[in-house]
Design a protein around this nucleic acid. Sequence first.
DNA 1: GCCAACGTTGGC
DNA 2: GCCAACGTTGGC
Length: 159
Amino acid sequence: MPTNSPQLWLVKSEPDAFSWQDLVDSKGKRTHWDGIRNYQVRNFMRDDIKKGDLLLYYHSNAKPPGVVGIAEVVKESYPDHTQFDPKEKKFDPKSKQDSPTWLMFDLKAKRKLKKFVPLQDLKDNDKLAEMLVVQKGQRLSIQPVEQKDWDEVLRMGGL
DNA sequence: GCCAACGTTGGC
DNA sequence: GCCAACGTTGGC
């Protein structure tokens, strides 16, 4: 059952590595979401993430952690070049040029939340009890988000 | 800085 | 195929 509506996701980024502001400062230019080395996340990129999908941009390992803004997928997944470069920290000697193991996609900043929504507020909101990001031990750097949870987070963020 | 949760690796 | 050891994530 195909649908025209974009899929919804949450992506985690450490602000020390690449913050929301860094994404904004790229001036809508495509930014590579590279360095993902987790098979479950790779499969999301390979199978599900489409151009036009929307993403909650979440700051992890931040003080405090939480959702900052909304980003948009501008290019669907393609091979992550860092896996082939021995100088890269994310170099993967097992990955072959003709069948790359790892993928990345491109995104741009779309809209900042009026209010930052800290993780603690997500946890305190009973409506979001099933949202993945509030689950203990949830480490996926890309997570699918339900429409109802998406709407609730945006409401909390003043949009 | 600590450590729980979880994924990956490798010996057997 | 099992599972201990190890590495990483990420909240606190």
